[in-house]
Measured scan of single mutants.
Amino acid sequence: TRVETATETAWISLVTALHLVLGLSAVLGLLLLRWQFPAHYRRLRHALW
């Protein structure tokens, strides 16, 4: 049971790290898009909202 718990903890930390990385890359990508294509971003936002 001790090994299982350790594996579970490792998986949880791995998944958390993955989610953090994905979230950060998504935010960075959005910022980059907004910085590179302001007109396109505004049009996209206008279409979405």
Score class of each variant (00 low, 15 high):
1 T>P: 02
1 T>V: 12
2 R>P: 12
4 E>N: 08
4 E>T: 11
4 E>Q: 14
4 E>I: 07
5 T>W: 00
5 T>A: 00
5 T>K: 01
5 T>R: 01
5 T>H: 00
5 T>D: 01
5 T>Y: 02
6 A>R: 08
6 A>G: 13
6 A>C: 08
6 A>E: 05
7 T>L: 08
7 T>Q: 10
8 E>N: 12
8 E>W: 03
8 E>D: 15
9 T>Y: 11
9 T>P: 14
9 T>L: 13
9 T>V: 11
9 T>A: 15
10 A>L: 11
10 A>K: 14
11 W>K: 08
11 W>L: 10
11 W>D: 06
11 W>H: 11
11 W>T: 05
11 W>N: 06
12 I>N: 05
12 I>E: 03
12 I>M: 10
13 S>R: 10
13 S>T: 14
13 S>A: 15
14 L>W: 08
14 L>H: 03
15 V>S: 07
16 T>P: 03
16 T>Y: 07
16 T>K: 06
16 T>I: 15
17 A>L: 10
17 A>E: 02
17 A>N: 01
18 L>T: 06
18 L>G: 03
18 L>S: 03
19 H>W: 15
19 H>P: 13
19 H>N: 14
20 L>Y: 04
21 V>T: 11
21 V>A: 13
21 V>I: 14
22 L>A: 10
22 L>C: 15
22 L>E: 02
23 G>M: 10
23 G>V: 15
23 G>E: 03
24 L>I: 13
24 L>F: 13
25 S>Y: 01
26 A>K: 08
26 A>S: 13
27 V>N: 02
27 V>L: 15
27 V>M: 10
27 V>W: 05
27 V>P: 05
27 V>G: 09
28 L>W: 09
28 L>E: 02
28 L>M: 11
28 L>G: 11
29 G>F: 12
29 G>T: 14
29 G>L: 14
30 L>N: 02
30 L>Y: 09
30 L>D: 04
30 L>E: 02
31 L>G: 04
31 L>N: 01
31 L>M: 08
31 L>C: 15
32 L>V: 11
32 L>S: 05
32 L>Q: 00
33 L>R: 03
33 L>D: 01
33 L>N: 00
34 R>K: 15
34 R>Y: 05
34 R>Q: 02
34 R>N: 04
34 R>T: 06
34 R>L: 10
35 W>Y: 15
36 Q>P: 06
36 Q>N: 13
36 Q>E: 05
36 Q>K: 14
36 Q>V: 12
36 Q>R: 15
37 F>C: 14
37 F>H: 05
37 F>S: 03
37 F>Q: 00
38 P>C: 12
38 P>Q: 05
38 P>K: 14
38 P>L: 08
39 A>Y: 11
39 A>R: 14
40 H>Q: 14
40 H>I: 08
40 H>T: 11
41 Y>V: 14
41 Y>K: 01
41 Y>C: 14
42 R>N: 07
42 R>L: 08
43 R>P: 05
43 R>N: 05
44 L>C: 06
44 L>D: 04
44 L>V: 11
44 L>P: 02
45 R>D: 03
45 R>L: 07
45 R>A: 08
46 H>D: 06
47 A>S: 07
47 A>F: 09
47 A>M: 08
48 L>G: 01
48 L>I: 13
48 L>N: 05
48 L>H: 02
48 L>R: 02
49 W>I: 05
49 W>S: 05
49 W>F: 03
